[in-house]
């Protein structure tokens, strides 16, 4: 089977119901949509990935069912996969399995990079498999002017910096020993009502879009992302950013429609950014 030109690929693990919903919505706007599981890449019948001396990438992957994905036929990829499983190596030694996983991940990263601006996301230039940790997102958010909830890590609960902020520390678990020496995550998530901003392309939606939408779009721009969700919580002093998710679970039909429209727009662009 050969797919038609201009295919929209939604690459996501099987448990990702948001991806299924986005793929369905995208199918109403674009002729060819393929929901691709990462393990299908690990089980592909054939991989050909070339990099020319000038850096141009080209090639194709033939899936187990015979579906042929030529680079030139792919108009857009929504990448919601963090890892590419290698089921063929399930019975191999741990060392061989780890090697196969790294090699396959490296191949898929290069394949996606070769598709350039057609991939939403990881952000171009961010490197394969690179995911920001929560505090890195919060630090970047602080730089673009978003109010962030404090978050800290300590290797020992008895550090002066922890003691000074004792009211933050996770409650001690009954019966736990060596409390002073144990590592702690010291967070102060406000437990008041929350809100969120969803950035899709250069647009912001969600309950706090009016207040923080512009800065969340700036955050996405700083991270090179075209899709991310910012979650806020408010303990009475105003909403504080507590988390950022570049692969958000989406439940609102309007949000799913927005993402599907972004994919259709990327697919229609001659030279996506």
């Amino acid at each position: 089977m050969t797919t038609s030109a201009g295919l929209v690929v939604v690459l996501a693990p099987s448990w990702d119901v948001t991806a299924v919903a986005v793929a369905r919505a995208a199918a109403t706007r674009h002729a060819g949509v393929l929901l691709l599981r990462p393990e299908q890449l690990g089980l592909a019948r054939r991989w050909v990935h070339r990099v020319a001396p000038d850096g141009t990438a080209s090639g194709e992957v033939v899936l187990g069912d015979g579906t042929r994905l030529a680079d030139g036929d792919i108009a857009c990829v929504l990448n919601r996969a963090e890892v590419v499983p290698v089921p063929r190596f399930a019975a191999s030694t741990a060392k061989d399995r780890a090697f196969a996983a790294m090699e396959t991940q490296a191949l898929v990263a290069s394949w996606l990079a070769g598709l350039g601006g057609r991939v939403v996301d990881p952000p171009p230039g961010s490197g394969p498999g690179q995911l920001r940790r929560r505090r890195q997102w919060l630090a970047l958010a602080h730089e673009v002017g978003l109010p962030v909830a404090p978050s800290a890590l300590a290797t020992s609960a008895r550090l002066p910096s922890v003691v000074r902020r004792r009211h933050w520390t996770h409650p001690v678990q009954a019966g736990e020993r060596h409390l002073g020496r144990r590592p702690v995550e010291v967070d102060q998530p406000p437990d008041g009502p929350g809100g969120e901003v969803l950035v899709v392309g250069d647009r912001a939606g969600g309950t706090l879009a009016g207040r923080y939408g512009r800065r969340c779009v700036s955050l996405a721009g700083a991270a090179g992302s075209r899709l991310l969700q910012c979650r806020f919580a408010d303990a009475g002093g105003g909403p504080l950013l507590v988390d950022v998710d570049p692969r958000p679970e989406l439940h609102e039909p309007a949000a799913i429609t927005d993402v599907a429209e972004l994919l259709a727009m990327v697919a229609a662009a001659k030279d996506p950014p």
Binding site: P147, V148, S151, A152, L153, T155, S156, L159, V186
Partner: peptide
């Protein structure tokens, strides 16, 4: 060695 890393206001 001990470490403290914080992001906040």
């Amino acid at each position: 060695v001990d470490l403290w890393v914080e992001v906040g206001a």
